[in-house]
Write a protein that binds this DNA or RNA. Sequence first.
DNA 1: TTTCGTATACCTAGTGGTGGGTATCTGCTG
DNA 2: CAGCAGATACCCACCACTAGGTATACGAAA
Lengths: 224, 224
Amino acid sequence: MSDKSWFKNPFSRATPMIKRSILLVDDHRILLDGVKNLLSESPDFEVKDTATSGKEALQLMKSNEYDIMVTDYELPELTGLELIRAAKSVLPDMKMIVLSMHDDPAVVKELLRAGIHGYILKKDTHKTLVDALHKVVANRRFLSDEISDLLIQMADEPEEKGVLTTREVEILRLVAKEYSSRQIAEILFISERTVETHRKNILKKTGATNLVGLIKYAYANNLI
Amino acid sequence: MSDKSWFKNPFSRATPMIKRSILLVDDHRILLDGVKNLLSESPDFEVKDTATSGKEALQLMKSNEYDIMVTDYELPELTGLELIRAAKSVLPDMKMIVLSMHDDPAVVKELLRAGIHGYILKKDTHKTLVDALHKVVANRRFLSDEISDLLIQMADEPEEKGVLTTREVEILRLVAKEYSSRQIAEILFISERTVETHRKNILKKTGATNLVGLIKYAYANNLI
DNA sequence: TTTCGTATACCTAGTGGTGGGTATCTGCTG
DNA sequence: CAGCAGATACCCACCACTAGGTATACGAAA
């Protein structure tokens, strides 16, 4: 694996492979700079472009091709999930790796269902990223150790307790913005009763007993 | 500034300066790896050690010296603020730059008061970090553009609205644990009325109007 | 010492969230 | 088509939180 001789020596007889092109998406420029630099030393991969928002990434995809996209989950404008879904329709053959700081099993599951090929954490090392890149180009999936542990652990639970509907998420977001039920009703053009019902259902689903639990849930699930 | 000739050419007659040693602290290994790699190309700086927690960083400081510490604000075990304060007593001459993803004016102010020399955001570029490093070794302070804008904007506001008393923080923490006022009263052996008064004062100080705002404040100030 | 901040405590009204229901309409899926 | 999930809507009782007050005691700072 660590045989980079042909790379270090330009006169090597080995045939250099064509480098896999990567689109790197993260709103933290400093991480972008860092990872790009790290990968520039790799014989197998090359960061062709970078983007600091989902929108920017999509625009790049419309006029360029990439073998792999490595993207943050927390993004401005589009969420990681929205970006993944959009990317899948623009470049169906591109491999996708999510590089996130959060180890939330629900998010990981949703992303895997959406078709990503790898999920690694920002606390992982550079080596982990390179391993993941190798795995996905070989048509295999890659999960960072912590994430696979998490999924295994979760498998025990009877499961699927949680998922909020889109409307419920919408309500929850507004609740988190300090709107009262009445205000939410006005914003969404629905009855205050309906909002109350949604809130009750959200409380039941999340297992929270009051506003505080709701907000904590919203934070934990990156809804804020 | 970009004259790196002595660096690129080892036979240059210019006298190489001694590189400033950096301690880099961040729980995201991949950022650590990336920044270290980027700085390895700099003629002026060198990442001597890295740490992924405040504790680890402090231990390193006890047996080593560093010219500059660059640290995340969100850290496991110790918060950035605690690390800064502890670092100041261990290595009083070391420069400290905070590299955070959050642009919360209250946090920035508190850190500046605690004696940091620079504050930059993860969304800033590698170049910004290098600029900051140069500034602080020249005994000057450095704030990323967004942060200084923020502080200027804040200067208009009359007050020091923010700081909660220790009792208020205690109450807030319990509120955030989903305890009702009555339960908090029982836990702290005080009257429910007193709890209510504290809550009111906290609301006033934080500018929140309800529980939601309170919890968001608690999150933003790492009280949870 | 006087003032200030902090913590303590109480009152009243009013607003809003919680928890228990029930019920209709829509669209999807087996 | 029947069944189910989701979004909509309403009712009522209860209780928790919010927003005005006022007031006392203590220790630190000016």
